[in-house]
Write a protein that binds this DNA or RNA. Structure first.
Lengths: 169, 169
DNA sequence: TTGTATATGTTATAACATAACATTATACCA
DNA sequence: TGGTATAATGTTATGTTATAACATATACAA
């Protein structure tokens, strides 16, 4: 029988409304720096600023939202700069793009090359969380293989109601 | 033991390069008319034209592509008309929207309220096909339920190589 | 320090989508 | 049949997301 040693069951918990979010951000930035150091890519000022803005919350954020936050102090950054930073962050597995929202969110599992990109998105609080279910991935892999198809990349985005928000009555 | 009576195993086959596509189109249009009659919604000229254009192939098509095809004969249709037609077709389950491509494709299973919206998309020939895997749906439902999440809608879009196109060597 | 690769700045435009209001067509009932 | 409500379409304008192309600047290694 396989060993089952989990420190806690919180690994995939949906972000709680009152959690200490500063920790999420600090942790993400630390790991991001480590990943970039290891991969010998450069986490420049603008890239880090964009990453910080993406990590302001667990709500996916649009490129132009990031842009206006960057420019809120009178800056003159252009859209290209933001898209380039996002492209870098995507390539390095530091953020994800949600196709259903045209928005970006910080990767919650930096380093563990999951690359699953399976998301739960709450319609009420707009929070998005990575699902990363191994059984789901297995079912998907099998279903796709049965069709004679070879996976290159996948998008799984589930919209609904998170554990902290009730469906409208 | 459950009965297993399938006319053929082709139900979920990936569209073959040389298949008789006129049949796909004719079939889709016939079913579309039936659905609209049953639901007492109106398949007007522009709606049917857009549906026909969507069914020109199994490659998802953008709204502005549809628009330029509509106007290729000197017409002056505006984007709104196309988007409104697409909205109608979506509401009536006659087409799907692929979020990863910002494009639309005819629904291959009109009537059978699947609403799964699981797609395979070939990177080479650009053909998209509905996956609609029950095991996948089950795994997904379960994984989501385990997180205390309630599904409202789902997007599953798998990009890769179809059975008729080889991965680049 | 100088060359090369990488990153950023800048301008313009492409691509996708909707808001708001006017007009026309259709259905349905009195 | 004619009036009226509803649905559909026309029209204009604009919002939103994303990329192309070329110029300049910065970092790093030889």
């Amino acid at each position: 029988m396989a060993t089952r040693t989990h420190k806690h069951t919180d690994t995939h918990a949906f972000p709680k409304p009152g959690h200490n979010h500063d920790r999420c951000t600090a942790d993400a930035l630390k790991k991001a720096a480590a990943v970039c150091a290891q991969r010998k890519t450069r986490l420049t000022d603008i890239r880090r600023e964009v990453l910080e803005l993406v990590w302001k919350s667990h709500v996916p954020v649009g490129a132009y939202d990031i842009l206006s936050q960057l420019n809120s102090g009178g800056g003159r950054t252009a859209p290209m700069a933001v898209y380039r930073a996002l492209e870098f962050l995507l390539e390095n597995g530091l953020v994800h793009r949600l196709a259903s929202l045209n928005a970006f969110i910080g990767c919650a599992h930096i380093g563990k090359d999951h690359h699953a990109a399976q998301f739960l998105i709450c319609r009420v609080c707009e929070t998005a969380a990575e699902l990363d279910s191994a059984p789901l991935t297995r079912a998907l892999t099998q279903a796709v293989a049965e069709r004679g198809f070879t996976i290159d990349s996948q998008i799984v985005e589930i919209s609904g109601f998170c554990p902290h928000c009730s469906p409208p009555t």
